[in-house]
Amino acid sequence: MFENVIIGQYLPGRSYLHHMDPRAKIAAVVFLIIVIFLVNSWHGYALFGGAAIAVYFLSGVPFRYIRKGMFPVFILVILTFFLHAFFTRDGEVLFSIGMFSFYEEGIRQGLFISLRLLLLVYFTSLLTLTTSPIDLTDALEQMFSPLERFKFPAYDVAMMMSIAIRFIPTLLQETEKIIKAQTARGADFNKGSMRDRMQAFVSLLVPLFVRAFRRAEDLAYAMEARGYNGGEGRTKLRLLVWGWRDTLCCCLIAVFGVILLFLRQ
């Protein structure tokens, strides 16, 4: 039933990107997202495209996974392209279809925005495809920990995130099990009147919630029984290690940013 859901879409591997420190990867992606909004020339986008291809080869992720991850965004991208193409009326008229005229500036803007969106989604998907969820939360926790001085509960937020991530597969399994059990009792989740389908849906949701609350309670007891009492002074089993790859990546990205600034029009 959920056979095609690839959870958290992390793909284990041993590529350059997989070996990088998640903090470096997050920093790089955030930096790229910022600079992509500064690019406003064809040279800039060409350079960005080149970088995207290079990173693809560094990631070792099969292309079909990237395509699958980006497919839903395509619809959004095409929509934004046409919005811009229709409504921007600057520069020369390139061509007209019926009552619509397409202006040079409109097409240009549309293409730029589409490219920005695509590249943005591309880099973030590579981040989640090559970083395990646990590494991601660990990294986020460390990157946000300076904010604890301002009462931002970085540790607790990270703990909540990792628990949530840990239980996604369990919840999916549970959902599948209950759907099967209710289907065996004749419930129909796909066909039938609105009323029947509502009923089927309730027969799934109620047990799911009951079990989730029960499990949350059990987990809370189990954690307390093992001495958990919040983040204060807790040490980590898995330490994040900053290596040469990370330094190299950060340097390259900085150089990349500077070049892009020069290519601005």
Partner: peptide, 17 residues
Amino acid sequence: VRSHVGMVFQYPEHQLF
């Protein structure tokens, strides 16, 4: 076919709602 088959799953109490 389904209307002829009854199925008791592991931990069937999880299906009560």
